[in-house]
Design a binder for these strands. Structure first.
Length: 420
RNA sequence: GGAAAGGUGGCCGAGUGGUUGAAGGCGCACGCUUGGAAAGCGUGUAUGCGGGUGACCGUAUCGAGGGUUCGAAUCCCUUCCUUUCCGCCA
């Protein structure tokens, strides 16, 4: 969400930044609505002033017993009412329209974000080596089904497409992955573990930017709750409508939750396996910082997510997303892509975004510094997507007999077994 | 699900129709006092919007939205949230 005053002051810069996002210039329209709004405010206010001052007089006349004067004024004010009502309604309508126009605009890219679509994403670094096999590496769903631990058919009978049932040691491995991540982030990286609601109201989703524009990506209950598409929603909203002392920043939260996505626009993509499910687990990192520290925090968050992959011995690369490939609320995003030998491709396993004050304006999350209040900066990142980590482990640790070795760091969570 | 009580400023809390943006307290800031600190005393201390170069003026905001009224924190309706009791329940 943008400050209309900034747009008013610098419309050309604003439009230039929109262009980086691949959007048409918009400042002219916004400024026009804003002007209408301000005119409407001025009109309504002058009538309000008249009403207020005359009503005060009525009070004075009434208390001094001057009934005639009071009655005369009452009639005058009465006659203002319908006109004032109309003006106020008109102003509200305009203000709503302005707010809607502003709320569907994405955050603008930071200056070091490459301009363009996903072709322009920049590879920042690669860590580790692609695993080589002396046999043909299988994809995770073949491995899982062959082991009898992954069942898509059974799941589809219960819930339809894009669901899976995992059993036995594989179910345990997924839990182990999540526990390992939570332990790492809480004990080594200063993140506080939080257990959050996974049903949320529209306000929370508005705050993080999923609403009003992306409702079709969400699942909604018949009682108007939404299932969270990511724990970013509840975690970031932890500071909604509040003012934090700068001494208490940064706040770092980590949560392990199921995530629910309708995958409305993804028909035909990743239809096999657990790559793209309606329901999946994710360990999510959220940091809330002051305006001066979000850039550092962003790098730090990326390194926290990377550390998970390093300790699991997985080959990955870090991509700096181009302006048109970033999510709605982000001003800068790093994706971490893990190497999947079965697919022979790098696939996204984490996305770490700095949202600046874009979300906090929507949530009204502020901090206090030297007596003045400012909007906090919000950051979120997967640390990591649990289901996709499971895929990576299965494909990278597969053996020629179809068994899967368990990475060293996970063995303590797996009864010290070495394979499944 | 039934019954009831509440939601007021950074925090606590008073306020049931009239100059109340809102008493009082806490906190915070500045000043006085002190060798220094504490205590004490004094002064100040919400936010958005509109207008003005500015001092400042106007307007809105007492959970949210609507209504009654010349005038609403105060009355009415709707809604959200919190708490208590009963019922049910993982």
């Amino acid at each position: 969400m943008f400050d209309i005053k900034k747009i008013r002051d610098n419309p050309r810069d604003f439009d230039k930044n929109l262009a980086k996002r691949g959007l048409n210039p918009n400042s002219e329209l916004l400024i026009k609505i804003d002007e209408e709004n301000r005119t409407a405010i001025a009109n309504a206010q002058s009538l309000q002033e008249e009403r207020n001052s005359k009503s005060k007089l009525i009070g004075e006349y009434a208390s001094s017993g001057n009934v005639d004067e009071a009655n005369k004024l009452k009639e005058e004010v009465s006659s203002l009412k319908s006109k004032l009502h109309d003006l106020e309604n008109k102003q509200k309508e305009i203000a709503e329209r302005l707010k809607l126009e502003l709320s569907i605009l994405p955050n603008l890219p930071d200056e070091d974000v490459p301009i363009g679509d996903e072709e322009c994403n920049q590879e920042i670094k690669t860590v580790g080596e692609k695993k080589e096999f002396d046999f043909e590496a299988k994809e995770h769903f073949d491995l899982g089904e062959n082991l009898g631990l992954m069942d898509f058919e059974k799941a589809s009978k219960i819930s339809g497409a894009r669901f899976v049932i995992q059993q036995g040691s594989l179910a345990r491995l997924e839990r182990a992955i999540a526990n390992f991540m939570l332990d790492l982030h809480t004990t080594e990286f200063d993140y506080q573990e939080v257990n959050v609601p996974i049903l949320v109201r529209d306000n929370a989703l508005y705050g993080t930017g999923q609403l009003p524009k992306f409702e079709e990506d969400l699942f909604k209950t018949i009682n108007d709750y939404y299932l969270i598409p990511t724990a970013e929603v509840p975690l970031t909203n932890m500071t909604r409508d509040s003012i934090i002392d700068i001494a208490d920043l940064p706040l770092r939260f980590v949560a392990h939750t199921p995530c629910f996505r309708s995958e409305a626009g993804a028909a035909g993509r990743d239809t096999r396996g657990i790559m793209r499910q309606h329901q999946f687990y994710k360990v999510e990192l959220v940091s809330l910082t002051d305006a001066n520290n979000s850039k550092n925090e962003h790098e730090r968050m990326l390194s926290c997510a990377e550390e998970v992959l390093k300790r699991l011995g997985l080959n990955y690369r870090v991509m700096l997303l181009a302006s048109q490939d970033m999510g709605f609320s982000a001003n800068k995003t790093y994706d971490i892509e893990v190497w999947l030998p079965g697919q022979r491709a790098y696939r996204e396993i984490s996305s770490c975004s700095n949202c600046g004050d874009f979300q906090s304006r929507r949530m009204n999350s502020r901090y206090k510094v030297d007596g003045s209040t400012k909007f906090i900066h919000t950051l979120n990142g997967s640390g990591l997507a649990v289901g996709r980590t499971l895929i990576a482990i299965m494909e990278n640790y597969q053996n020629s007999d179809g068994s899967i070795s368990i990475p060293d760091v996970l063995q303590p969570y797996m009864h010290n077994n070495k394979t499944l």
